[in-house]
Design a protein around this nucleic acid. Sequence first.
DNA 1: ACTCCATGTGGAATCGATCCCATAGTGGAA
DNA 2: TTCCACTATGGGATCGATTCCACATGGAGT
Lengths: 333, 333
Amino acid sequence: MTTLADVARLAGVGTGTASRAISGKGYVDPDTKRRVLDAAAELGYRRNAAARALRERRSRVVGLMLPDIHNEFYTASAAVLQADLHAAGYQLLVLATGNDADAEKAAWETMLDRQVDGVVHVPVDPDGTPPPGLPVVQLNRHTRTATTPAVVSDDIAGVAELTRTVIDAGHRDLVALVGAPELSTSAERLTGFRRAATAAGLVEDAAAGPRYRVLVTEFSADGGAAAMERIADDLPGAVVALSARLVMGALRWAGERGIAIPDDLSLAGLGDPEWFAVWQPPITSFAPALAGMGHRAAQELIAAMTDPASASSGVVRLPGRVLVRGSVRAAAG
Amino acid sequence: MTTLADVARLAGVGTGTASRAISGKGYVDPDTKRRVLDAAAELGYRRNAAARALRERRSRVVGLMLPDIHNEFYTASAAVLQADLHAAGYQLLVLATGNDADAEKAAWETMLDRQVDGVVHVPVDPDGTPPPGLPVVQLNRHTRTATTPAVVSDDIAGVAELTRTVIDAGHRDLVALVGAPELSTSAERLTGFRRAATAAGLVEDAAAGPRYRVLVTEFSADGGAAAMERIADDLPGAVVALSARLVMGALRWAGERGIAIPDDLSLAGLGDPEWFAVWQPPITSFAPALAGMGHRAAQELIAAMTDPASASSGVVRLPGRVLVRGSVRAAAG
DNA sequence: ACTCCATGTGGAATCGATCCCATAGTGGAA
DNA sequence: TTCCACTATGGGATCGATTCCACATGGAGT
């Protein structure tokens, strides 16, 4: 390994000058600078990140804590996040918390050990608190207790709009499928649904007339299918499945049961995995702006790391898009 | 920030003893050790990773270089990779190369700068060479030039078996859809297809009689749809789409054209995204053992990092599973 | 002629943990 | 008793880049 001292020796200058020439800060004569740079190139010199981190007290590494790496809902944001942070000179250290509060706690310790400059955090534990003094941006979900900025999708407005299009299509008997009610996302999606439903005069759990029901289940395809099974005997006109996995579960159940969508049952979803658009019929859904959230999170975190004092602590809600496609049919309203 | 010196002072010992007590190596009296550990706990002491990395010349960080973070084909392996490496005390630094040879070169530099202890690499540039001396394991694809171990799916055997099931169903007129022929994956998948097809007596591009065709296109849903459009006037009995994206493209094209699968056209695919199983009909496909590949890659890399001399340089081919489902119909053979 | 400031440079201290080396007490073997 | 092996411990050198400080030069301003 060639060190800065080697470069300085070859260039015939002191280590201080060599450092200034390479880092570009401080006074260096242009000729001297060239000599140093040439020497560095000749030796194939690379700055030792560990030494820099130790001395500068910043690692230029940002942590990304998320429940599951193998979940495109997160990776859609993570991809642009990585790109933006990379462009700003930061590398991404990824840690999976696996929806486990203990793992999340341990992950914070790891982040501290690694002296990351900041963390992008998809919270798992609603009561978890990040270590003080560390710039953190919450992504996707937000906890009540934390005082860090959060970048989330405006699911309230989005799901409300989605629900409205279902109602506008003539449906007066709805069911919402939702999972993990302790998460802010679930709560907000449900709020959006209820808001639109009640605004249209639907009554929760009414025996007759315009009504809606809410089914809480596991946040998975199996959970979605199981929930559908529970209402098999009393199917509504339309189901609003509040996550892509729940959509999948509903779809699977409908396929097994021979229920045709949208002829026998209308279905609206949330998210926008590629296959939603290809499905027959293509799935009508509310698509959170995942890429936009990644951009915004990167931006907020960079701001917080650059000037910790200026860090906002509000919740940024980014609007998504309602994609009206074929899985909701016009009903005799 | 509390340092080791603070802990040593509080415990009334020297820094050497404190270090030994905390790291657990070398002679320390049990009582002394307890005093040090208590002091560390009281102060909330955490070892500085930068200082350790500088002194020990190892960072306990592993780099993961992949083309696209937002691609579940890679993240399926990456998730278990992260878990296994985490269990072994390593953190994962993720860098996206975006299918760009220049970005890949730059990524190697970054890895060197960060003094990662090893790299898991999904190669982009078939001619790229990793920097010498750095433990590297190639994942998913492998380059001809590199001398590092590689963990890939046995697509040759897998696609051959898949193709055989299609032929066994009675089909004698096949089309293979493949993208990016410069990648080892594409080449191997095609080899598997050709091997099974010719073994069954099918002739490439024959005007009449048992035959098969190979369509090279872009590795995307659009590419798949475009390829289907090219053979719209002369549809085969079955299409074997050699990636999940190509399956999606074929499906989209069939949907738009009103071609029923499997009644008008049989379709077999590669990969196993969740929606394959839910699709009507569920997609018959060859599913590479992505999780298994992640495990194996972690294992190989840890071995290479622990003892660089013992590093194998062979290509490990892991068998996958052929999932016979509903998208291939029995044909009048 | 003298400050003064801007430019330019070398050297040493610094970051924090590891680990080698010197030192010393203790128990057992010779 | 002497010597060696083993257990314990403190202190200092070390990893490599950054940055502060002292110092030097030279031209402008008074």
